[in-house]
Design a binder for these strands. Structure first.
Lengths: 201, 201
DNA sequence: TTTTGACTTTGTAACTAAAAAAGTCAGAAA
DNA sequence: TTTCTGACTTTTTTAGTTACAAAGTCAAAA
């Protein structure tokens, strides 16, 4: 078979794993189950991925692509920086709701393979770039004032993540309830307002 | 013996426990060790506290008192709201550094006794009152503008806690390194600046 | 009323065995 | 030559067990 087919098979495996992972949780899914879904042997999976961890990372990257596609689409359509920042919030929340079973916090915790660190670093960097773009555009149009949009963007993202984390006081868990989602959303909207006001002076 | 002596003994127990807890960690300290320090029997401790959990909470309340005393002193001396908010940051950090072995996150996690919840609720409320006071004073002097100082105060505290939590991506742990402390401090100062700018419009 | 030694109960760390899942490989199939 | 697989080994997880340490109790003494 040719390279095209190899990539195609990789893609099929990732999609099958994504389904299982989002449905039942990554750690509750076995390689045999994924293989059975694809009507192939477990050994075949190991022809395309060196181990389960690599597959897990590939699945997270796939989910990340979906997130960034929706995020760019959503923010590009916003008329002002204010709208763009506020529109980001539900996109983030939907991502968290949809893919919480991918157990990304768990991956982040045990930093066995530093491979995953790089993936997360890139995702963070991409998000920072997007927010920097929103702020820079706002500065260019006169809507906002900032002498360091990138730093503000990094702080904004860090603070938003913090509001999400500070909710689950109990444990660093991926799963959160609907009421908790709603509470986080309210905090995040309020904080976005403060940032926007702070960047208008 | 009279009530004064009873309270005095309670106080001595709390102080002995505070020393042990901050030194070796609360969960690594046994009731026998505390009793030995006081040259009394373990059974005596149980005459003053129904269980170890209650003693732990009492110790946390004691530490909280120290924190609030220093916080009020520090913020009262600040000439402007901006100074007051910035002065809070190192006070918070020093508290965290000094009392991290009190394992307050651990207590917060396993919510066996809802007793502790009430203690934390009150502490949060008190901190909110202080920050609300700072902002209100700033509004009164014309330094800041806000139609809801209490809401802003709550958001401010929540965001600051979030920045602390978002650092330890690994685990909800009480212990953090000096470099991490420094990083949190920088984030917090930057966020304070944003809030102050946001409240000047 | 306060304290205590002797006691019981409970929680936890350290092993263990069994099961399940991860991961490997020689060789078959295409 | 590339892709795939059944049969295999290794590793991880889980459930059970014990042994010890610490929590917690109480009748009786001070």
């Amino acid at each position: 078979m040719h390279t095209e087919n190899r990539d195609e098979m990789r893609e099929r495996i990732i999609e099958a794993a994504l389904k299982r992972f989002t449905h039942y949780g990554a750690s509750k899914t076995t390689m045999n189950e994924i293989a059975d879904d694809l009507h192939c042997s477990k050994a075949s999976l190991y022809y395309y991925f060196p181990d389960k961890h690599s597959l897990h990372i590939a699945v997270l990257e796939k989910a990340g692509e979906m997130y960034f596609q929706e995020l760019e689409q959503s923010t590009a359509a916003a008329p002002t920086a204010q709208d763009a920042l506020l529109d980001m919030i539900p996109v983030r929340q939907n991502f968290a709701r949809k893919f919480c079973r991918l157990e990304l916090f768990k991956i982040l915790k045990d930093k066995q393979l530093l491979n995953s660190d790089e993936t997360f670093r890139q995702a963070r960097e991409k998000e920072t770039t997007i927010v920097t773009g929103i702020i820079s555009k706002g500065v260019a149009s006169g809507e906002l004032v900032s002498d360091n949009p990138e730093q503000v963007a990094a702080l904004y993202i860090q603070s938003m993540i913090g509001l999400r984390l500070s909710l689950s006081t109990r444990e660093l868990t991926d799963e959160i309830s609907e009421e908790e989602f709603e509470m986080v959303r309210e905090w995040q909207v309020q904080l976005a307002d403060i940032f926007i006001k702070g960047l208008k002076s």
